[in-house]
Design a protein around this nucleic acid. Structure first.
Lengths: 134, 134
DNA sequence: CTGGGTGCAAAGTATTTGCATGAAC
DNA sequence: GTTCATGCAAATACTTTGCACCCAG
């Protein structure tokens, strides 16, 4: 709520619901946002979800996460981090590792000026690894 | 052509054209593949492009690249590499840097088993930086 | 010859847009 | 009261599917 104000976004129940879901789930798709909010708020329209997500992205308030084999996910903007994505269960986990070394490597090489980076690790999460080794 | 055979994909003019375009452009979208091939081969259908791209992905012959703010792009599978993506002109450049250090960092942390990683750097390419500083 | 590929049209899914109404400030 | 958000329906974009026909091996 405070967050929305700070980003000059008018507060509506729909928007609060979206933000709360993102906070709760960390990473969530448009479809899931729509369905979950609808449970308690049946008048919500899909168009509203799309419009708000786009508005929030323009205000740099949320990020879009594109992941191979999954729907786009959205997350609240926070400190820089990378993602661990489980190919078995689809879970997405934030991980805070230092990617500066890599970025310096790139800067040293060519004339490319890095502004941001997207680092995703695909593999098997702890829980799925535990299951399959049984 | 040799490549297609090795991946057990039947050779057709449509497929050869797709592979040649990927080789020429490095990273290309479905729409661009369709339009460029159509110039010399007007009977090509979009459905064929989609079917072939899906078949080639299943055969691990090409990769899908999802990039924020761009259509999906496809590239021939080759050695592991990362991508430099220019936010100004949209260009995509391959870069060969060692990401093993990062992966080890992750492995040491939790129980996540990495199989592959996707590293994208977003920023300004050499050419665009040169323009804007004039 | 035979299986798989192609092109077309239709269906399915995802996303955007216009507009009248309604809510936020 | 004004501005902007919402919900609906329609439009657009993207992707897949079924099927008759055709070509590569």
């Amino acid at each position: 709520m405070q967050l929305l104000k700070e980003h000059n976004i008018k507060i509506t129940p729909q928007r609060l619901a979206i933000v709360h879901l993102m906070d709760e789930y960390g990473h969530i798709s448009v479809r899931d946002i729509f369905e979950k909010i609808r449970e308690n708020f049946p008048s919500l329209s899909l168009a509203t979800v799309y419009k708000n997500i786009n508005a929030m992205m323009e205000n740099n308030f949320i990020n879009e996460l594109k992941i191979v084999g999954q729907e786009n996910k959205y997350e609240l903007v926070k400190e820089r981090h990378s993602h661990l994505i489980c190919k078995k269960c689809g879970s997405i986990e934030d991980i805070y590792i230092d990617t500066e070394g890599l970025e310096n490597l790139v800067s040293d090489t060519g004339g490319f000026q890095i502004e941001e980076s997207s680092v995703q690790f695909l593999g098997t999460c702890k829980a799925c690894a535990a299951h399959s080794s049984q």
